[in-house]
Design a protein around this nucleic acid. Structure first.
Lengths: 83, 83
DNA sequence: CAACAATTTACGCTACAGCGTATCAGTTTG
DNA sequence: CAAACTGATACGCTGTAGCGTAAATTGTTG
């Protein structure tokens, strides 16, 4: 399972999908890593101001990791993504 | 070319490697996306407070994207990464 | 529907990212 | 070597993330 994410929104959606897949609640994740449940909500909603440390902690709690790579050809970008 | 990143540091290092690979300067990237050169420096140095919008803009400027996936088995994690 | 669970949203607070601007160390190059 | 370039760092400022706390909204299930 791999999800491409080019915008904060897409990152948030991906996290939400993985969390549901693993049947966790926001509260469980938040308690596991010492962040507020409201913070998890904010990240999943695609808050562009989310800090990198917050993201990496949520990823870790979900057993996930980031991969950075060239933009793939099968381009799913939207207009707002390009401009 | 794919780089795994589980911490802000690793994200910063990855960005720096890709930027060098493409022979860009921090200033060029910063001008392309309207951020300060100092901000690019900060991201590459692994600032944990870097905002998600900053990260996604730098990635776009470099023609890169994020992929979110399960942590792979060939685990390169360090102690500080785990705790 | 009622009762409970899950998520979103709000308020006041502190910490700090990114801003403009600029300097400085280190490197590259003519 | 001097001039130019590159990246790191500094200062004062504004905006806002995440905090504690808690209420409001939405979702689920008997």
């Amino acid at each position: 399972m791999e999800i491409q994410a080019r915008t904060p929104q897409q990152v948030g959606e991906a996290l939400k999908r993985f969390r549901k897949l693993r049947k966790f609640t926001q509260r469980e994740i938040s308690e596991q890593i010492g962040l507020r449940q409201a913070t998890i909500s904010s990240v999943e909603s695609g808050d562009a101001g989310t800090q990198l440390k917050t993201l990496t902690e949520v990823l870790k709690a979900l057993g996930l990791e980031l991969v950075i790579k060239e933009r793939s050809k099968d381009d799913q970008s939207t207009l707002e993504d390009l401009f």
